[in-house]
Write a protein that binds this DNA or RNA. Structure first.
Length: 883
RNA sequence: GGGCGAUUAGCUCAGUUGGUUAGAGCGUUUGCUUUACACGCAAAAUGUCGGGGGUUCGAGUCCCUCAUCGCCCACCA
């Protein structure tokens, strides 16, 4: 046993993983050929932010993609995983601005537009795309030659083309509308970029005096500082309390303005006082009311959400929150505060800026989505695109059927500049792929496009659209998309719309929505909480394979994952188990030649047939699970197969023929090799590094080749009689019973003892006789008496025993037996059995059951009852023998 | 206000279309340096499947309802 000096006792992933990745990449293994005749299989990566670093969310997401890619590669398909990064407008702009402030004592605004953009590109060259390198550490087999960036020339051209086409169709327009404004980015945002948080707030009731001095109205607001923009007070036209006031004026406190009282259905008589202050510039509802009554729109804020000159000297320049307090104070000074209530309400926050957004009226570019949504809704409804889990389609439909115009312009610099030019002299607007050539002075729009306006084209822009490239021909539409449900609106829905509109074809067939990863306590992972482990640390500690396997194993379908680093012990231990199974095999001698296919003439043992049957079963269920995106279930199956079936039982059982040597050993080695190679292949998509290493260590795969191009195992054609497999299972059950007896008497496992086995039938006896060497080994027995007769208690004294399917096993411990304990144990077993038998009999004597249940269910129930009754008789006899 | 999800062993979770005695990992207890593996082996204990009602011969699984927790959407001034 000195044949495998190269295999250390405990698997160490670091070196192995560092060794294989460059070999794979330098051998061009991930390269895809759009001209091949093979069936295409493609995935586009959800492009991570170019500023990003690997998080556990990426680990989960990309592990699953890599599992799919490797699985389909092993199915012999032409696979292509398109990688790349996203320019992430606002995030990158503020990241680089921060960098400039920290490192160079300058900033965006100091540098000016052109220089700043130049510096962002520079930063991107230097620091960007870290995550792309990190994905290699994880083992991802993407086609890196095809890495793209959303601001590459080609992709930028696609963006302009799409903009121009949608403009010509009349979908894209520029208009004055209510939008969400981020005071930090000083830019407009789309509705989707606003996150609502429940907060404690105040509800201020103010008195607005009537201009004629005949009293006052009480209005309530959560935003007192916007009152400088009030241009009316609305009451419901049906409201008896106030309808006589419609048309009169109120004096707007803190200003010199008088504003009208208007009748509008927006005012709900049942809410508050029934009077609403109308601030068209700062509230979407008020904006609508303003339009109906032709009210002036007065913006009272600066771009950074401080108050502007319209608010008067006392308030101008104040931050909005300071201004709020100050306004209330001023109103109190005037005695116009009726009351202040505490309320809980939802406040919209800017996703990036993490401050409350302002809703305000602004001139922006919008895209009308109504028509684009129609075919995209149909694509999912008809089942052309399938969602996993399916329930997300409900969320999708709800959003798509109520889709609003998309605010696509951003007042930042980093991004795709909107291809629109203004002629200030003529007032003309030109929209085109390139600058206008017509004479005159043209000024390009300053705004850039929302980042998602390039990401929604990703599945085809990454393949070279609008050119008709071989990649588009071969790989579009892509097959599967793996992404988080948090970007279903931002990205998934919009990609479907873009695909249908510009390719006239869906962008992908299946969308798998991953789980959200949380910490042990169920909290979201975040930098600020400090509960976000660095995957690279985890990989250094446990190995990439361990992390991949663990996260797949613990990720339930469509639910949150509770993750902690310690859980990776599962994957690490599993890798070690596999390593040692192979190490054991290597210690037995060199690889056998027929490891790819066993000779049909080979006469197998019961254990070997059992193992191959289990293997076949596992291959079937793992394949189905992968096809149905049930990754965790596939991981559980393969874990069970390797650990429980292969290691715990099969290797232990094969030690008998291995020790016997000669032909027995030869055959055992062949079966071990055959099974091991299949196991390595099954596991490869989950744990690419260790399976590659072991496939070479075991000499299943030649030097210069890779397991990743071996075919994924399919069920082989060996058919086994289920009755034989059941006998093998029965033997293991008997062994378990025997071990339990030993354990019950605190007999060390290593100590050899005598057993007596009474077989339940002559056939079973014959089988057990054939298997007796195996029984000796698995039970570590000194001597086993195998008979049809019960242990002779009269002659030898009472013995502890356990009943199993094939027979009763007893431990003849003459004189040492604890009779009372044994009786108690038996009585407990009998009592439990009594219950089950009673239930079973009741069921079987129920005429309705017999009439309505399927035949198979009835037959199974009868067989079970028989088994239980036999077991019952056996236990009763054992009890009697103890008297 | 609408929608979705969760509630199963001490913890984290499996449990395909309703059909044997509800499973795994971790943890706990006991015994093991058995020549692949202590990142291990063998054995053991632990559950009124959130409460209530219903459908059914049969419910962890389907329906209704309540409770708790979480997420998403929605203009409540």
């Amino acid at each position: 046993m000195s044949d495998a000096p190269d295999m250390i006792k405990a698997y160490e992933p670091a070196e192995v993983e560092a060794k294989w990745y460059p070999i794979w990449e330098n051998s061009n293994y991930f390269h895809s050929d759009p001209n091949s005749g093979k069936k295409p299989y493609s995935i586009v990566i959800p492009p991570p932010n170019v500023t990003g670093i690997l998080t556990l969310g990426h680990v989960l997401n990309n592990t699953l993609q890599d599992i799919l890619i490797r699985y389909h590669r092993m199915l012999g398909e032409e696979v292509c995983w398109f990688p790349g990064t996203d320019h992430a407008g606002i995030a990158t702009e503020s990241r680089v601005d921060k960098y400039l402030r920290q490192e160079e004592n300058t900033c965006r605004d100091d540098l000016g537009r052109d220089e700043f953009i130049r510096r962002v590109w520079e930063w991107k060259q230097k620091y960007g795309g870290t995550i792309i390198r990190q994905l290699r550490t994880l083992g991802c087999s993407a086609d890196w030659e095809r890495e793209r960036f959303t601001m590459d020339d080609g992709l930028s051209m696609a963006v302009r083309k799409v903009f121009v086409e949608l403009y010509k169709k009349g979908y894209i327009y520029r208009g004055q509308r209510m939008i969400n404004w981020c005071p930090v980015a000083k830019s407009a945002l789309s509705d989707e970029e606003v996150i609502y948080k429940e907060e404690n707030g105040k509800f201020y009731h103010f008195r607005y005096p009537l201009a004629d001095g005949s009293g006052y109205l009480v209005v309530a607001t959560t935003r007192p500082e916007t009152m400088f923009g009030d241009t009316a007070v609305a009451v419901n036209p049906e409201d008896e309390r106030y309808k006589h006031l419609i048309g009169k004026m109120v004096k707007l406190p803190l200003t010199d303005r008088e504003i009208p009282i208007v009748g509008d259905i927006h005012a709900d008589p049942t809410k508050g006082t029934g009077c609403v202050k109308i601030t068209p510039a700062h509230d979407p509802n008020d904006f609508e009311v303003g339009k109906r009554h032709n009210l002036e729109v007065i913006n009272v804020m600066n771009p950074d959400a401080s108050m502007n000159a319209r608010c008067g000297e006392r308030f101008a320049g104040l931050d909005r929150f300071t201004a709020r307090a100050e306004t209330v104070k001023a109103m109190e000074e005037l005695g116009l505060v009726e009351k202040i209530e505490d309320i809980r309400h939802a406040v919209g926050y800017s996703e990036r800026g993490n401050v409350p957004v302002e809703t305000l009226v602004s001139s922006q570019w919008f895209c009308n989505m109504k028509e684009l949504a129609k075919p995209a809704i149909e694509a999912v409804k008809s089942g052309k695109i399938k969602f996993y889990p399916e329930r997300w389609s409900k969320t999708y439909f709800h959003w798509m059927e109520n889709i609003q115009d998309w605010c696509i312009s951003r007042q930042i610099w980093w991004g795709h500049r909107i291809p629109a030019w203004y002629n200030d002299e003529t007032g003309e607007v030109y929209v085109g792929m390139e600058a206008p050539t017509a004479p005159g002075t043209w000024r390009q729009e300053e705004d850039v496009l929302d980042t998602w306006f390039s990401s929604w084209l990703w599945p085809f822009s990454i393949m070279g659209w609008p050119e008709k490239t071989p990649e588009l021909q071969k790989f579009y539409p892509t097959c599967d998309l793996v992404t988080g449900p948090d970007i279903i609106f931002f990205w998934v829905a919009r990609m479907i719309m873009a695909g249908c509109e510009f390719m006239d074809e869906i962008p992908f067939k299946n969308v798998y929505f991953t789980s959200i990863i949380r910490d042990d306590l169920g909290r979201k992972l975040s930098k600020s909480l400090g509960n976000s482990p660095d995957p690279l640390d985890v990989i250094a500690q446990y190995g990439a394979d361990a992390l991949r396997f663990t996260i797949t194993y613990i990720a339930p379908v469509g639910m949150d994952i509770r993750y902690s680093n310690e859980k990776c012990e599962l994957g690490r231990n599993f890798a070690n188990k596999l390593w040692n199974a192979c190490r054991f095999r290597r210690l037995q001698g060199p690889v056998t030649p027929d490891f790819r296919r066993l000779a049909p003439s080979l006469v197998l043992t019961s254990d070997e047939r059992w193992m191959l049957a289990k293997l076949n079963e596992a291959i079937g269920s793992i394949t189905t699970a992968l096809e149905e995106f049930r990754f965790h279930s596939a991981a559980h199956e393969v874990y069970e197969l390797v650990w429980s079936n292969f290691c715990d039982w099969f290797i232990e059982a094969e030690k008998v023929p291995l020790r016997a040597g000669g032909e027995d050993k030869e055959r055992a080695l062949m079966v071990l090799d055959y099974a091991l190679f299949r196991i390595l292949k099954l596991l490869h998509p989950f744990m690419p590094f260790i399976t590659e290493e072991l496939a070479h260590q075991m000499q299943f795969v030649e030097e210069g080749k890779s397991i990743m191009f071996e075919s994924f195992p399919t069920m082989d054609d060996m058919i086994f009689d289920p009755a034989q497999i059941e006998l093998a299972d029965g033997k293991f059950e008997l062994v378990r019973a025997g071990r339990a007896l030993k354990s019950g008497y605190n007999i060390p496992d290593g100590k050899k003892v005598n057993f007596h086995i009474k077989a339940n039938s002559p056939e079973m006896l014959a089988f057990l006789r054939e298997e007796s060497a195996s029984l000796y080994s698995l039970l570590n027995a000194a001597e086993i008496k195998l008979e049809l007769d019960a242990f002779d208690t009269a002659a030898n004294g009472a013995a502890p025993a356990q009943a199993a399917q094939l027979g009763t096993i007893s431990l003849p411990l003459t004189g040492l037996i604890d009779v009372a304990a044994e009786k108690a144990k038996l009585n407990k077993q009998i009592a439990e059995l009594d219950k089950s038998i009673a239930g079973s009999r009741a069921k079987l004597s129920n005429e309705k059951f017999l009439a309505k249940a399927p035949e198979k269910v009835i037959a199974d129930a009868k067989a079970l009852l028989e088994k239980m009754e036999a077991r019952h008789a056996e236990l009763t006899a054992l009890l009697a023998s103890l008297q």
